[in-house]
Design a binder for these strands. Structure first.
Lengths: 340, 340
DNA sequence: TTGAAAGCGGTACCAC
DNA sequence: GTGGTACCGCTTTCAA
């Protein structure tokens, strides 16, 4: 016995398909008695409307697809949570398509991919130009989040300025600088976020005639951090120094490993991270803060604007970094010097 | 100007719609010249096939929907990556629907939800009975992952036994036990994972007439951990003790905070976690290991079996815990005692 | 090798 | 208030 269709329901209830459709969609102008008959028929047959058919007919899915480079970090959890609520309030559903594994870029290039069966597309933390060779296989409102590209609506974070801010703050501390760089996985598309931060840092330092006494590049894995810590412990400058870490997560991981090597935060070294994560805050880590929630909300608003068609011009909102100073960038020695 | 349809292409190329369809689907028996004409027309019009219409016509979407309680942890990243590859190899696409925010359960109850527009459904780390009040609004192959329920295919982890294993190992250490319990967010549906682990731990301990000297319950947030650490530092037993932590993440976070309170791992306390995460391994944390990758792969295989219809009986695979012993459960004192 | 036409499951116009 | 029917874009017999 096959899945019953709307027509089966109509036949069973002795009414036309129009009437069944009206009942399903809660239209007015249906007598209570017919409505009851239809509902009875629906229950008897165990009828469930076919979402796909409805979408097809209406030409819209009420869905937004988000293309993500990964999941598994609190950053995306926060960002997407902030994004989701406003969308939901307007009746849109959100589906996530992370780039799981490595060679999956291909998946996004296929125009028949499930992700493109949506009313709007959100490209997160990725450069559309290198995601697709040419034009995207999606023809509908498209918004970039945590990324920027001329020709697309975008909500982004000024990572270059963030790098500058971090570097300037680091310079102010007047300590030798160790740079803990984040490397991209060899098969993943290079993260524009890292590129911009790195540029901001390096350019600012060199403008002041300073170069890091040591630069360590670490893959987004756990093992790399231990090696990095050992390297830093071995090659560190004689006195206290400041570590500039590409992300909070790297900073916190490194801190743990340095501890194992006998180096103590605030005594032997200072530490500055990026992102302003909750974990960083809880750990007393100074960080260049990114307004993650606000960015998610802004993206939702741009998306909704584009969906309702009243976005005449390109919207490109860029959020600015702020620096949150905490214990990790204050030397114990200095605390005694300045008891004020 | 509207989006061109297959019919427009046919007209432009001076052929029938059948031919265009055949070219698109790479059917044989098409002359090279007509194929060329069709392809030219497609490019001139910038035609992109309508995925939704095709799905509608075929009655299948080649999609699998995964319902997740959250994202943002490496656990799901690993699990889903392992799951994704085999599915992709069979031509299936994977869409993620995390329960973002709090009151989103409602979303999953709506039969017209986007998630149910798929060929198969994967319910991850959630009890279908409490996810849906009654029967699920989805009529197709459904598989539970990291969860178990009679009447569903499932791939799960024996969390109760994991709890038992942890408790037995802890008892062997013959130290007072502090239990760092994980609390569920007040609005989230209670995690069956925690329930089972907790039961395994508590039952095993009490069977041996032991109760934790201290139980601290902590929400999945950063702030709770600091408080927990303070509480433990204040109320700890006089000598060394062992902390049993509900997850590796909690264990690692706690370790950091305890350090700030002056308590040192392996000297003042031992630490045992759950999950066998990469971060735990890198940090030398002993842990009850869950074979995450294997579980993901197994789920994919069950899913594919169900999709091809050759699953005559219910498949319920349960994976067993193993204990990975590392530095975190060895006292420094003992190292000296047993130099062998 | 190619094309005409039926139809997947809904919705909405228009007539009654 | 209600029903007949065209149609959304595509795939697939069936016949030529």
């Amino acid at each position: 016995m096959n899945k019953p269709s709307l027509r089966d329901v109509a036949r069973r209830a002795g009414v036309g398909t129009t009437t069944v459709s009206r009942v399903l969609n809660k239209h007015p102008n249906i007598s209570d008695t017919t409505r009851a008959r239809v509902i009875a028929a629906i229950e008897q047959l165990g009828y469930v409307p076919d979402v796909g058919a409805r979408h097809f007919r209406l030409g819209r899915t009420h869905a937004v697809s988000a293309l993500l480079p990964m999941i598994g970090t609190p950053f995306y959890e926060t960002l997407l949570t902030a994004l989701h609520s406003p969308l939901e309030a307007e009746g849109y559903d959100l589906a996530l398509f992370p780039l799981l594994g490595s060679q999956r870029v291909r998946r996004f290039r296929d125009a028949s991919a499930l992700a493109y069966r949506a009313d709007a597309l959100l490209i997160v933390s990725q450069d559309p130009a290198q995601l697709y060779g040419g034009p995207p296989p999606f023809h509908g409102p498209t918004v970039l989040l945590d990324a920027h590209h001329p020709g697309y609506h975008s909500v982004s974070f000024d990572n270059h300025r963030a790098g500058r801010l971090a570097a300037e703050y680091a310079l102010d501390r007047r300590l030798p600088i160790v740079f803990l760089d984040g490397a991209d996985a060899p098969d993943a598309p290079g993260s524009p976020v890292f590129v911009a931060r790195r540029a901001g840092i390096v350019q600012t330092l060199s403008r002041h005639g300073i170069r890091p006494v040591l630069t360590v590049s670490v893959l987004p894995e756990q093992e790399g951090l231990r090696t990095a810590a050992q390297q830093i412990a071995a090659q560190r400058p004689p006195g206290p120094f400041l570590i500039l870490s590409m992300t909070d997560d790297l900073a916190l991981g490194l801190r743990q490993h340095l501890q194992d090597s006998g180096l103590r935060l605030s005594e032997d070294y200072l530490l500055l991270g990026f992102d302003g994560s909750a974990a960083a805050a809880a750990a007393g880590l100074s960080s260049v803060v990114q307004p993650v929630r606000a960015m998610g909300e802004a993206a939702a608003s741009v998306l909704l604007g584009a969906l309702s068609g009243d976005l005449s011009t390109l919207v490109q909102r860029q959020f600015l970094p702020t620096l949150r100073e905490d214990r990790s960038t204050v030397l114990h020695a200095d605390r005694h010097l300045n008891p004020a």
